[in-house]
Nucleic acid binder design. Sequence first.
DNA 1: GTCTGCTATTTGATATATCATATATAATAC
DNA 2: GTATTATATATGATATATCAAATAGCAGAC
Lengths: 220, 220
Amino acid sequence: MTKIEYQPLNDRAYQEILTGLTNGIFAPMQPLVIRTLAESYGISATPIREALQRLVAERLLVVLPNRSIVVPQMTREKFAQLLPVRVALEGMATELAVPRLIPEDIARLRGILDRIAGTAKTFDARAYLQLNREFHFRIYEKSGNEELLHVIQGLWLKVGPVFTGLFDSDHFRRHANDEHVHIVDALERRDAAAARACMERDLTLAAEALMPRLQARAAP
Amino acid sequence: MTKIEYQPLNDRAYQEILTGLTNGIFAPMQPLVIRTLAESYGISATPIREALQRLVAERLLVVLPNRSIVVPQMTREKFAQLLPVRVALEGMATELAVPRLIPEDIARLRGILDRIAGTAKTFDARAYLQLNREFHFRIYEKSGNEELLHVIQGLWLKVGPVFTGLFDSDHFRRHANDEHVHIVDALERRDAAAARACMERDLTLAAEALMPRLQARAAP
DNA sequence: GTCTGCTATTTGATATATCATATATAATAC
DNA sequence: GTATTATATATGATATATCAAATAGCAGAC
């Protein structure tokens, strides 16, 4: 007996819009119109509205004074502010995960590493982003701290759309996996401090590759 | 010309329910019924539903498999998981605030300190909670990092209801202000590391006072 | 030409109606 | 009596209708 599962429409609308955001479907400052979205998803306005409200609460969308709901522009400043928060929390999660990772987890991480290396050769940006996310969260999940994990997830949602451009940088693509390898090595040695340091460096290097691509300030 | 401002009903419903949560009006595990809330606030179901959804997204409420929406029980485990996250972020915010605090800010903080001392004598728990919050956020706001501030606000919302019981502890009430004084002293000396350390201790001591009052695990 | 004010249209906000599911209650079988 | 089923009720989920604010378009004044 396979449990059939029901998912409310607002949840699904949320997911749809979210992946749209992550894939950069919606241009910043272009308003998301409730009725339009409702029609294009073939559902009524109510669940769409709820999904948008939720995204606003998570700060993935913002409400203009006109009440229009738009994608906020990720500026260099905002990204720079997000970075130390992510470094602190993802570093913490990594450290916490060290004593809880079993050899099987390490093996799985090495598997991801191999696949990431593959994407650098095939220039498959989408696969890279997917695997990069999987790599990080396989570690964070092992922190055993659900509250911490939830906050980190929220932060990744915010920076998600920006990451899309990560693979465009030649230099980054070639070195994308370097820190990842160091992280897994440290994890395997059960060296929590080193694992944390490598994770922090990974985040910082990615941020440095991305920052120049971002606009200095929000458009007026 | 004073700008008249409009606030959507869902925002106000959100605020109302939120203060209800903070004041412990809604018992954990008791379902919040949309129609009932709508009636008691004299508005329709839609804005209430949106407010509840938002609170669920922020994890201040949870959806049961039955789809009922209830106040989650704050367990000792959850609180313990929240603590290191708060320590890291609020410590960071404190450190960032140090070079940005002007003498006027320090003076204002001293003023809050005095008023907090007053509440300990008059046993005014509500005033204490209010002032304690104000004290902390006056500092965090000065971090200049809006993203960080937002995350911290979210964390405070989660622990808010628990804090209500803080003042019941005799020992805590007498020493509630001790660390605060140390924090301000450190801020005045522009000693970022010390300010951070004192802030971390303040959070930890409060947590230690509260933890025993929490249930060890969630009810089944 | 620009500016002003009017009208129409778009779009968000709210209320209501309807549907589906879950819970409670009652009735029946045993 | 308990267990089981049927029915009624409560409640969440969705769709639709209505209202209100904002925007766009247009006509006339100058």
